[in-house]
Amino acid sequence: MIGLLKGMATTMKHALDGTTFTVEYPDVAPEVSPRFRGVHKFSQERCIWCRQCENVCPNDTIQIVQDEQRNGEQYNLHIGQCIYCRLCEEVCPVDAILLTQNFEFTADTKDEFVYNKEQLKNVPWYKEIDPLNAREPDRGAWVGEGEGEVDYQ
């Protein structure tokens, strides 16, 4: 009986203290960590079309189309298929693709989630924060040049 009463006292204590741990989401924007991985942002000025992001992507989310001179023509990314592993950003040697903290995206159909390079360029920063600074301490860490072959195309 004491255990029962203890349990009931505990829930009543929570009911009376008036604190909540949920937030009113659309009105109160959640705190997102600087490292959070959201929708990609693409920079055509930086991109050197090395196609490493396309190669490393585990589920073929990135599609790059080049002309005969290997100039980039298209950069398509299916943000609905993406698993947000951040490997593309990790292998990019020039920071041309970056995962913003922006997690709010909607569409009516799946097809609309296929972003081309213009759409990827226009992805806004979340709360105007450029997450590049959060990457700073360890950006070089992944490289691991080692002895293996480097598969630049």
Binding site: T11, M12, H14, A15, T19, T20, F21, T22, E24
Partner: peptide, 13 residues
Amino acid sequence: KITAAFTDRISVN
């Protein structure tokens, strides 16, 4: 509202 109070949530508002 009551269930939310017990579970520290906000509920309909």
